[in-house]
Computed example of a mutant assay.
Amino acid sequence: MRSGMERRFFLKAALASLAAPALWQMNGLAKRAGMLPENAEDTLTVPLSIGNGVRFYDRMIVITSPDGVAVVSSICPHLGCRINHAEAAELVCPCHGSRFNARGEVLHGPAMRNLQPLPFVLDRAEAVLRVTLKK
C-alpha cells in the first residue's frame, strides 16, 4: 500500500515540476504579446543630449534628429531581445537580425511589428526627457 502512495506522490510531483516552467514561459510570452495587462509604470528621467544620434538605455532607445526626438522601446517585438546597437541609420536586434528605422518601423524581419513608441515629456528648462515605461 505504501509503495502505491509513494508512486502517486512521485507522479504528482513530476507533473508539477513539468507544468511550472511551462506556465512561467506562457506567462512571459503572453506579457510580451500584450495579452496580459501591465498595471505598473515607471517614469525614467534621462539627460537631453545635445546633437543628433541614437542613445541606448536599458528599456528604451532615444533618437534625436533635426526633426525632433523619438523614444521607442528597446525590446524587439520578435522574441523580446534588447536592441542595443545601430548600424548606419538602422536599429539592429542582436538576436535574430531584425532591423528598424529611426522611427522604430520594421525594415527587415523576422520581427513583424514595429518597436513600441513610448510617451515622453521634453523638459527644456532642466534639459531632460521624462519617459513613461510599462513594467
Rank of each mutant, 00 (worst) to 15 (best):
A88K: 13
H78T: 05
M60I: 09
A86D: 05
G51T: 02
P77N: 07
V72F: 00
I50N: 12
F56S: 04
M112T: 14
P66L: 10
L79M: 14
A102E: 13
F56H: 05
F56N: 09
G68N: 01
V71G: 02
L48V: 00
T43A: 09
I83H: 03
E90N: 11
P110M: 07
D42Y: 15
V71H: 04
S98Y: 04
P94Q: 01
M60D: 02
A86E: 11
A70M: 06
P94V: 00
E90M: 14
N114K: 12
P77K: 05
H85M: 10
P66C: 01
I63R: 11
G109E: 10
R55N: 11
V71K: 04
I83K: 01
E90F: 09
R113V: 03
V62I: 11
V92N: 10
E105M: 12
S98I: 06
R99L: 03
L91S: 06
L107A: 07
A89F: 04
R59G: 14
N114S: 15
S65L: 03
V71M: 04
V71P: 01
G53D: 02
L44P: 04
N84D: 15
I50G: 07
S49D: 11
S73C: 13
A89N: 14
I61E: 04
Y57F: 14
Y57K: 05
V62E: 05
T64I: 07
P77G: 08
R113C: 11
P47R: 08
F100T: 03
V92C: 14
F100D: 02
S74P: 09
A70G: 09
D67M: 08
V54G: 03
T64N: 10
G109K: 10
V46G: 04
L79I: 06
G68H: 04
R113H: 10
V69D: 02
I63Q: 05
L107N: 02
G80W: 15
G80L: 13
G53V: 01
H85T: 15
V69R: 00
D67Y: 04
S73A: 15
I61M: 06
G53Q: 06
C81D: 07
H96V: 12
N84R: 11
D58S: 13
L44H: 09
L79K: 12
R55S: 15
C76R: 08
N52L: 01
D42V: 10
V106T: 14
C76V: 04
E90K: 13
V54A: 00
N52H: 09
G51W: 01
N84F: 01
L91D: 04
P77C: 06
H78E: 07
L44N: 03
L91Q: 04
E87I: 15
H108Y: 11
P94R: 01
C76K: 08
I50R: 14
V46S: 08
L107T: 00
G80N: 09
R82V: 13
C95K: 07
S65Q: 10
N101D: 13
A89I: 07
R99G: 00
V106A: 14
I61A: 02
L44A: 14
F56M: 02
V72S: 01
G51L: 00
F100M: 06
I75T: 15
L91C: 06
A102W: 14
A86W: 08
T43G: 02
E87F: 09
H96I: 15
V72D: 00
L115N: 01
L44S: 06
C76I: 09
C81W: 09
C81G: 08
C95L: 11
E87R: 11
L107E: 00
I63G: 08
A89K: 12
P66V: 10
E87A: 12
